[in-house]
Simulated assay, not measured.
Amino acid sequence: MDKITLYYFLVANKVTLARGENVKLMLVDAGLDHKYVRVERDEWPNIKGKLQEKGAHSCTLPYIEVDNQRFFKTVPIMRYISTKLDGKYHGSTPEENQLLDVVCEVSDVWFDHLKISFAGSEEVKDNYTNNTLPAQIEMFEKFYADCKGPYLLGEKITYPDFLVYHMIDDGGAREKLKGTAPNLVKFVEAFEERPNIKNYLVSLA
């Protein structure tokens, strides 16, 4: 692929927070040449207007730019990259790909809960920590228990794995996995040992 430019907000002054990091992790893992442009919130309305003038109908962040073409929405971006790489991060059968679609959708539900918690009252935050988060961990543990692991489809990493890893990291789940979700623990350990990912995580320390 030609060099990719990824655009996303800098959320709460944390370089890995929120949806852009899913795409970033895939770009890193695939070893793709890319640039990451962080957009200031007061810049976005002007940028969005220019994108709409150029024919973009659903302008959201993150988006990527490749060879003067722009692609929007986190999961569709990830599917596009995988497709361009000959299905590198897709499943091998329609049934596997259906499972990947399901896990993508339920990870979006988890993300929506996290967004509500992030901006909510202390009561809302407590409900997320004490009820929503344990329920999400329990459900995703079942998905990862269905295969021999460490990834959702066994030895092959696929694009939902990036979403799930980032939700674990972003959603406050990491410290709650031990003793309750052994398959997710195995998954996180394997993910973080992937050579390109490992080097990237070291660079953030």
Results as ranks from 00 to 15, higher is better:
Val11Thr: 12
Ala12Ser: 15
Lys14Gly: 10
Val15Gln: 14
Val15Pro: 12
Thr16Met: 12
Thr16Gln: 12
Thr16Tyr: 10
Leu17Met: 14
Ala18Gln: 12
Ala18Lys: 11
Asn22Asp: 10
Val23His: 01
Val23Ile: 11
Asp29Lys: 01
Ala30His: 06
Leu32Tyr: 02
Leu32Thr: 01
Asp33Gln: 11
Lys35Asn: 13
Lys35Leu: 11
Val37Asn: 10
Arg38Gly: 03
Glu40His: 06
Arg41Val: 05
Asp42His: 08
Asp42Pro: 02
Asp42Val: 09
Trp44Leu: 01
Trp44Cys: 00
Pro45Phe: 03
Asn46Thr: 15
Asn46Met: 13
Lys48Gly: 02
Leu51Lys: 03
Leu51Ser: 00
Gln52Trp: 02
Ala56Asn: 07
Ala56Tyr: 04
Cys59Asn: 00
Ile64His: 02
Ile64Val: 08
Glu65Gln: 09
Glu65Ala: 04
Asp67Val: 03
Gln69Glu: 14
Phe71Asp: 01
Phe71Cys: 05
Lys73Gly: 07
Val75His: 07
Pro76Asp: 10
Ile77Cys: 04
Met78Asn: 05
Tyr80Met: 13
Ile81Asn: 00
Thr83Pro: 11
Leu85Ala: 01
Leu85Val: 02
Gly91Asp: 03
Thr93Gln: 09
Glu95Asn: 10
Glu96Phe: 10
Leu100Ser: 06
Val102Pro: 06
Cys104Ser: 13
Glu105Gly: 11
Val106Arg: 11
Ser107Ile: 09
Ser107Lys: 09
Asp108Tyr: 12
Asp108Ser: 15
Val109Leu: 14
Trp110Arg: 03
His113Arg: 14
His113Val: 12
Leu114Arg: 10
Phe118Asp: 15
Ala119Ser: 15
Ala119Phe: 15
Ser121Gln: 06
Ser121Glu: 11
Glu122Lys: 15
Glu122Trp: 07
Val124Lys: 13
Asp126Arg: 15
Asp126Ser: 15
Asn127Thr: 15
Asn131Arg: 13
Asn131Tyr: 13
Thr132Gln: 12
Leu133Asp: 08
Ala135Tyr: 09
Ile137Lys: 00
Glu138Met: 11
Glu138Asp: 13
Met139Asn: 11
Glu141Ile: 02
Tyr144His: 08
Asp146Val: 10
Cys147Lys: 13
Cys147Ile: 06
Tyr151Ala: 04
Tyr151His: 04
Leu153Ser: 02
Glu155Val: 04
Ile157Ser: 05
Tyr159Ser: 00
Tyr165Arg: 02
Met167Ile: 05
Ile168Phe: 04
Ile168Gly: 05
Ile168Val: 08
Asp169Asn: 15
Asp170Phe: 14
Gly172Thr: 06
Ala173Asp: 03
Lys176Phe: 09
Leu177His: 06
Lys178Trp: 06
Gly179Ala: 01
Thr180Trp: 04
Pro182Val: 01
Val185Arg: 05
Glu189His: 09
Ala190His: 01
Glu192Tyr: 01
Arg194Leu: 07
Pro195Tyr: 03
Tyr200Gln: 00
Ser203Leu: 06
Ala205Tyr: 11
